[in-house]
Design a protein around this nucleic acid. Structure first.
Lengths: 253, 253
DNA sequence: CGGCCGATTGACCAGATTCAATTAGTGTGG
DNA sequence: CCACACTAATTGAATCTGGTCAATCGGCCG
């Protein structure tokens, strides 16, 4: 188990929504054990592999994506520390996407048994995990709106904002500055553009003073303007996990 | 409760994945009680309304969508009979989209209590509902791929195919023919195009003999070609709900 | 220092949008 | 049953955003 300081990102996340008791803390900690180190730019999962386990991201960034028949790529999700990868694949026989590390990563492998354990033992954590999944679903519908109806510039804006708020959730943004290990190719494939359009959008935003780039870093200078431009909604702000039924009242809180 | 014949669409769906026992059948039936009739083209939910209930579609088609600041629309989901609307909104304080009926509909209103009841009483149904939600998530990521990387023609193809397989799940497609109450504006807003592009795509597909339209109906003539064109995956084919842990073994089966 | 990958920039092209006019189809009311 | 109104679908022309292709620049690493 981990100490309060230097908590795992998933625990940090959980701590924002509920006051973990000792049992829950331990159970959540069991998800974080024995992390596996993954080098930058490695294939973690190839499409078609049996979906009999999940990953919890301890550190590092990853991408899940599909390849189109013509070779182009669509990034389905950017995975940050604290993310649970593969939750939604549990009812499916195999992964239907590729998973690649952008940076050196530390991943914990879970079996379905780990999840089932939580479902059996702690309704509060179950509710928390399911809520996370539902919010995930929401961010996907937000992206549908982005890919379906936004121009290049707004797509990039929306992507940066959603990355920023996610990093803040796990205390990995220093104000408006954060590490940004994605190339413009990666970003393009995430928002359905080409690297050229992304370059143009970023340059234009920088020129207008909305953001600032330095190698591997991103700084959002005019967050208000950007939020306004894309009607940004922070889905993490308003999660309420109390919808999930649980029998034993939590010990603390 | 309903008879086996004339089952509710949700029960038909459930029956494809598990052999319901009497208790489960009754509990599922409780979701289908007292349907509310909704006229064609009415607003069922306006954005911002408290998300304290869910809907189960008994009959009819609905759209959930968001409006962009410039007035354009992005359809987030087309809801068919058997769909549960609002599941993912449970952890959120309010709906974040509009819900409109395309046809006359029959909807059952559920409270969070109904869902909690199922979660308490039957692990198998819980697993089924959660699996449905996860598959829903998968279809959303499929649509990301569509909106991010496909041209007009393929977007339309993908949409029609996914509608077809969903209708088949609830026994509402006669072979390759199905009712299709959407306008080309609706379809356009679902796949991120304009009505003009949709018209062109449909005409071209019809001319090439891949489909046939008559008023309010759609017929897929060359399903194999269309599946190939978009690398279509039927997410419903391969669901396995046994991942979900449950204590008491089911009585039947 | 050289090689490589990523970012930038420009010219040209293509697919989709916009705008507009026409046709078809649906439903209403006389 | 027909005329009218309204909505949806079709078609064409002009426009525009973003894609494609290509050349250059820049930084990082061995």
């Amino acid at each position: 188990m981990r100490t309060r300081r230097g908590e795992s990102p998933l625990a940090i996340l959980a701590g924002k929504y509920l006051n973990l008791n000792e049992d829950e803390r331990e159970l959540l900690g069991s998800l974080d054990n024995q992390p596996r180190r993954i080098a930058r730019n490695s294939e973690v999962v190839r499409e078609g592999r049996a979906a009999d386990n999940l990953f919890v991201v301890q550190s590092g960034w990853l991408l899940s994506y599909t390849i189109m028949p013509d070779g182009r790529r669509q990034v389905l999700q950017v995975h940050l520390p604290g993310d649970i990868i593969g939750f939604c694949d549990m009812p499916l026989p195999s992964f239907t996407y590729e998973l690649k590390s952008l940076t050196d990563c530390s991943l914990c492998m879970l079996t379905h048994g780990h999840i089932q354990d939580i479902f059996h033992k702690t309704p509060r954590l179950t509710g928390f995990l399911l809520s996370l999944m539902m919010v995930d679903q929401k961010t996907h519908t937000d992206r549908l709106r982005v890919l379906g109806r936004m121009n290049a510039r707004d797509r990039v804006i929306h992507f940066l904002l959603s990355t920023l708020v996610r990093l803040r959730m796990i205390d990995q943004a220093e104000g408006n500055i954060f590490d940004f290990p994605m190339t413009q190719f990666d970003l393009a494939d995430a928002v359905g553009l080409t690297n050229v359009s992304v370059s143009n959008a970023l340059s234009s935003l920088q020129e207008q003073g909305a953001l600032k780039r330095s190698t591997g870093k991103m700084q959002i200078l005019d967050e208000a303007y950007m939020r306004e431009a894309v009607s940004f909604i922070n889905r993490f702000e308003s999660i309420d996990i109390s919808w999930f039924p649980y029998l034993p009242p939590a010990k603390d809180k």
